[in-house]
């Protein structure tokens, strides 16, 4: 475990949620390894557990890990609170970012950068940094004074998520359907933002998506297919092309226990 390599390791992860009928298991043994500089795509049909996996990595209290482990450079992530995980270098771009009325974007960004970096960023360089990152994402500077995600359109919320990723410079970024709800222009801009972070090689990216169109902009080295709470197939970029043509049908029939189409495991 060298310090230079940031590695997120997920082993045999089982996760349940509390429902009215009692606990329901959603993730049923997920194994996945993401290293700094790598880009992984997780694809899968609706309800297969993709968001559950991302929330579990981030530590959402609604999801209970019943078995397995998550470590970051050997550190037990599951033992950390939500905020400690973020400070350890984990970032989650949410599928549905939350509105926080009355808390301005600028105040929020500065609070989170201060927390994650361990000290308040120097005001002058910080203002420049935010401005440059917003420009790269073609965000109007006026957003800085609005409430966090308050009244943002779907596309604006996603840009705001990627803006945070760019500023917080995580070791591991989980992007939960950052592409959904974006028109062609917005997809290009947001993809550009992700690509810029990726190009620095300091972040391992776990790109969760339902569709293949974002993969035209961001080329993952590894593609995983999730169905019914498990990784049921793994391969390289060519697997995405297969999914593009044939969809997820073969994985969902028989509850995810179908024949893989890809080229063997990658973890």
């Amino acid at each position: 475990m060298t310090a230079a390599v940031s590695t997120l390791e997920i082993r045999n992860l089982h996760v349940s949620v509390e429902t009215e009928e009692g606990p329901r298991e959603i993730l049923r043994g997920v194994d996945l390894t993401v290293r700094k500089g790598e880009t992984h795509a997780i694809m899968g049909p609706n309800g297969s557990g993709k968001s559950t996996l991302s929330y579990s990595i981030a530590g959402h209290p609604k999801y209970t890990v019943t078995d397995g482990s998550i470590t970051l450079d050997g550190e037990d992530v599951l033992a950390m609170g939500v905020d400690a995980r973020a400070r350890a270098g984990i970032f989650l771009a949410m599928q549905y970012p939350v509105e926080i009325p009355g808390v301005s974007v600028s105040n929020f960004l500065r609070s989170s950068a201060t927390a994650v970096r361990g000290e308040a960023p120097k005001l002058r360089t910080w203002v420049k940094e935010v401005k440059a990152s917003m420009e790269a994402l073609e965000m109007d500077p006026a957003f800085a004074e609005r409430g966090v995600n308050e009244g943002f359109s779907g596309g604006e919320k996603k840009r705001h998520e990627i803006l945070q990723m760019a500023l917080l410079k995580p070791k591991i970024a989980v992007l939960d359907e950052t592409d959904s709800g974006l028109d062609v222009d917005a997809l290009r801009i947001v993809s550009g933002g992700i690509e810029a972070v990726r190009a620095k090689g300091e972040t391992g990216i776990l790109l969760i998506t339902h569709y293949t169109r974002i993969l035209r902009y961001i080329k993952p080295e590894f593609v995983h297919v999730m169905a019914a709470g498990r990784i049921v197939d793994e391969g390289g970029p060519e697997l995405a092309a297969v999914l593009e043509d044939s969809g997820y049908d073969r994985y969902v029939k028989g509850d995810g226990a179908a024949a893989p189409a890809g080229a063997g495991a990658v973890s």
């Binding site: 949410m94 926080i100 929020f108």
Partner: peptide
């Protein structure tokens, strides 16, 4: 909202 803020490192 609290989860969102904490997931950005805020205690």
């Amino acid at each position: 909202a609290l989860f969102y803020l904490q997931s950005r490192g805020i205690p």
